[in-house]
Computed example of a mutant assay.
Amino acid sequence: VQAGVFKNVAIVGGGSVAKLGMKFAGNLKHNMPITEDQLGAIAIVIGENDGKSPVIRLDAIGKHDIAAGSSAQAIYKKLIVEPLERIGMGILDIDKFAVELHNPDITEPNGNGNVPRNNYRTIAGMAVLRGEMDKSKMDSYEDKYGMPGFSPTQGHIPSAIPFLIHARQMIMKGEIKNSMFVGKGSMFLGKMTDLSDGMSFIIEKNNSRKS
């Protein structure tokens, strides 16, 4: 779109019936209702800069190459720290981080824990190590800069993007000025290959920046 090849591009992705069926066992084991009861899908339209809608920072795209390693520190260095450093920003300069937004009501009964919370604690830990935040504020980091997991858990569906429409609305209302979306490679595939990859991007308030 920025290059002028197309005026509008639609990105469409769907969940998986097979993945939908993988999640009910934990609920039944704990005598809970089946919470993974919908097939997730996403559609996004990226268009030309209209002077008012939030814009994507093309100078701060994060890319985690497989060769960079699969530790949490290596992943977040590539996806968060390095893109922010390129534009002179720190971790606390991002108002909201969207990470893996799996609904913990689905993942915890299956033994996978609270995935978003674990991600936010890792980001907070990196902010502490970088001297951007005091360790005493780690427990409150999720409340201020993150959000509870709310997404269906099928494949790529929960990977940050479900927050996009909410981020757009919050930016348009002036509630936040920016948001960073961090998508990591599939945990399932990662367990099979011991490899990881991912991408990240920032959207921000439109200040007539042609991005």
Rank of each mutant, 00 (worst) to 15 (best):
A3P: 00
N8Y: 14
N8M: 07
V9K: 04
G13M: 09
G14M: 10
G14W: 05
G15K: 04
S16D: 14
A18L: 11
L20E: 14
G21H: 09
M22L: 13
G26M: 09
P33F: 12
I34H: 09
T35A: 14
T35W: 07
Q38N: 12
Q38D: 11
G40Q: 10
I42E: 14
I46W: 08
G47I: 03
E48S: 07
N49C: 10
G51V: 05
D59S: 13
H64I: 02
D65A: 12
A67Y: 03
Q73Y: 09
Q73N: 09
I75T: 14
K78A: 15
L79H: 05
L79N: 06
V81W: 00
E85N: 04
E85Q: 12
I87R: 03
I94C: 01
I94S: 00
D95K: 03
K96N: 08
F97T: 08
L101V: 05
L101R: 02
P104Q: 09
D105M: 12
I106D: 06
E108V: 14
N110I: 02
N112F: 15
V115I: 15
P116M: 09
N118I: 10
N118L: 05
Y120G: 00
I123W: 02
A124E: 11
G131W: 02
D134H: 01
D134K: 04
K135A: 15
K135F: 05
S136Y: 00
M138I: 15
D139M: 09
S140M: 09
K144Q: 15
G146R: 02
S151I: 01
G155Y: 02
G155V: 11
H156K: 04
A160H: 08
H166L: 05
R168W: 09
R168Q: 13
R168D: 12
Q169N: 13
M170D: 13
M172R: 10
M172L: 14
K173Y: 08
K173R: 14
K177S: 15
K177P: 01
K177M: 13
N178W: 01
S179H: 01
F181S: 05
G183R: 03
G183I: 13
G185E: 03
M187E: 14
F188V: 15
K191F: 08
L195F: 07
M199H: 00
M199D: 00
I203S: 05
N206M: 09
R209S: 13
S211P: 00
